[in-house]
């Protein structure tokens, strides 16, 4: 498949995933649209191009691993897993409902394809380190991807894990920062400025790439470069737009953790048609 066609197909898949995000949050009546939409292109690229997966064998030892460290973006993960065939797409409508496998934040014990239970921020990168170390111990060549929020970088454990990943030279590990610039209380630069983000990762010993997190070609190129990087882990700092794809949600801090209702759902789905 040539690259133009691959990019077009991934963009189409990302559109479908964004529609799922809106529909499932609308149905649930609560949840986190902003950070799910900002990560949709990255997660689509991972699940439909980059990662070595077999949805019929979620426990396949050779599979690549994805850790959604920013666990509140569960809808984007669920939509990707359903579209990839881990469970029926119809089940997305059960999000956040009693008895559902689609918990408000990902639960690895309930839903096939979820590699780690997350929700309390700052913890996913350390877990990804452990997965990457296990690959080395077992002589396996699987790769590990962790998606972090930019606000999440305020958690100290992220930097403990960043230090350790470089110390162990985990070249099979990629951390992606969904740098959408907003957190619950406002712009990250106002709440607790993380800048300069790329320099921080560089200083911690990582190979750092800065991309537009909605440009599929840049996303794929970054993953390709990470794959060929030796002796250190790769951090992809992906500039994104919170709420990307829905005009009234884009760059609006209030759409961090509020579900769309009625007309809002209709308009969002129309924009994503």
């Amino acid at each position: 498949m040539d690259m133009d066609q691959a990019v077009a197909e991934l963009a189409e898949k990302a559109r479908v995933i964004r529609r799922h995000i809106i529909a499932m949050l609308g149905e649930a009546g609560s949840g986190h649209p902003g950070g799910s939409l900002s990560a949709a292109d990255i997660v689509t690229a991972l699940y439909f191009r980059e990662m070595r997966l077999d949805p019929s064998r979620p426990d396949w030892p050779e599979r690549d691993r994805f850790v959604l460290s920013k666990g509140h973006a569960a809808p984007v993960l669920y939509a990707a897993l359903a579209e990839r065939g881990y469970f029926p797409v119809e089940e997305l409508g059960t999000l956040r409902k009693l008895g559902s496998r689609l918990q408000g934040h990902p639960d690895m014990k309930k839903l096939p394809g979820v590699e780690m239970s997350t929700g309390s921020l700052g913890q996913g990168l350390a877990v990804a380190n452990g997965m990457a170390l296990a690959a080395r111990l077992d002589g396996r060549d699987y790769r590990v991807y962790a998606l972090l929020g930019d606000g999440e970088l305020q958690e100290g454990q992220v930097w403990e894990a960043a230090m350790a990943a470089a110390h162990y030279a985990l070249e099979n590990l990629v951390a992606i920062v969904d740098y959408n610039g907003l957190q619950i209380d406002g712009p990250v630069s106002e709440v607790m400025a993380p800048e300069p983000v790329p320099d921080k990762w560089r200083a911690f010993g990582w190979h750092v790439l800065e991309i537009d997190g909605h440009d599929m070609r840049q996303i794929l190129a970054a993953f390709a470069e990470a794959r060929h990087t030796r002796g250190q882990p790769t951090a992809i700092i992906a500039r994104t737009v919170k709420g990307k794809g829905v005009s009234f949600m884009e760059n609006e801090v209030d759409w961090h953790g509020v579900a769309p209702k009625g007309e809002q759902i209709a308009q969002a789905l129309e924009e994503l048609a």
């Binding site: 030892p61 877990v127 350790a164």
Partner: peptide
Amino acid sequence: RFFDLGIAEANMIGTAAGLATAGK
């Protein structure tokens, strides 16, 4: 098979969790 995570207990527990997911 020994990992000294340094003075970073939170990271030690998280790393252990990741190792455990892979059967360690």
